[in-house]
């Protein structure tokens, strides 16, 4: 059995904000009727949370569930727990039309930390998204474009933002996040 590796093990940057690759994270794409009671059961069994509302992300212990589209959720949990979570989803949704796939190795995750204004600024420099305090807050997830590629991000708290992207573009996204925090590039728009 080969040893699982994240996209950029140990990659880190320190500047106006800090960036680090979070390492292996279990991710499951779950598609189906989000309003169904079986779906609520599947999400509860797999991650211990309720089904998130539109553009929301909910956390419970080491697990998170993010709303990706009207018929898609992203279930995040420990890397090693994915088979168990998939089995729980399969059992809860048995007979219902759904799709649940382990996409852990297809994604990369970065964590941007720093002063509240600095992390908002890092994202605002890279994505066409209003990062104002009244427009984006912890508990929301936003799928968008980061530079040239698709990405999604959410705020863990005011000083921490997590970014997920495809593994194939991990190096590019890390470069974007790093360059956004190079000394001399501070704008200070968000305080």
């Amino acid at each position: 059995m080969s040893e699982a590796q994240s996209a950029m093990p140990g990659a880190a940057f320190e500047g106006a904000h800090t960036v680090r690759e979070t390492g292996l994270c279990g991710m499951i794409t779950l598609r189906g009727d989000l309003g169904a009671s079986a779906m609520a059961e599947a999400v509860r069994d797999a991650a211990g949370t309720a089904v998130p509302g539109r553009r929301e992300i909910v956390h419970e212990g080491a697990s998170s569930v993010a709303w990706m589209s009207p018929d898609e959720l992203l279930v995040m949990t420990e890397y090693a727990r994915v088979p168990e979570a998939l089995a729980a989803i399969g059992a809860a949704l048995k007979g219902a039309h759904h799709l649940a796939v382990d996409v852990s190795d297809a994604r990369a995750m970065f964590e941007v930390t720093g002063k509240p204004g600095a992390v908002r600024e890092a994202i605002a420099k890279l994505c066409p998204v209003d990062m104002g305090h009244d427009a984006f807050a912890p508990g929301q997830i936003r799928r968008t474009r980061m530079g040239q590629v698709a990405a999604a991000f959410w705020m863990v708290d005011e000083g921490t933002i997590r970014v997920v992207c495809f593994r194939s573009v991990a190096e590019y996204v890390f470069g974007l996040l790093r360059d956004a925090g190079l000394p001399g590039g501070e704008v200070g728009l968000f305080g």
């Binding site: 539109r54 589209s69 009207p70 066409p128 998204v129 936003r142 968008t144 474009r145």
Partner: peptide, 10 residues
Amino acid sequence: CCGVKGEETE
């Protein structure tokens, strides 16, 4: 579908 107000490039 998702209620996002985004600009053209998205």
